[in-house]
Amino acid sequence: SPRFIALCPTTLSSSSSSGAVDEEEQRLRSDLRERFLRTLLLMTDKQVEFNMHEKVRVRARFGASDIDVLNFQVSGLETPLGVQKEALLRCQDVISCSFEL
């Protein structure tokens, strides 16, 4: 799939040469990915501030992300024009988001 090819160029090209390098890369990738997935889980149901393109800042309760990090599903989105009860934010529109523990 395209996602796999985008993710895995180094492993693909070196797959025959060195199994140990692959294993090390897989271990690092797993650890980094698991930490990220745990971050998203921690963000669930938190009030999150989204800092978006065009200097747009909005707040909402975080619901979930798709696994490819393309869309964030949120509730109670406080837009400049009022509250949108349920919304999807395009991750391409988002520069950063933050929350307190």
Partner: peptide, 23 residues
Amino acid sequence: MQLTFDRNCDKKQPKYWPVIPLN
């Protein structure tokens, strides 16, 4: 995680905000 996302989207029917992408 994907199941939660899909289920929430089916149940809540969220609409994209903003309607037109910023970026």
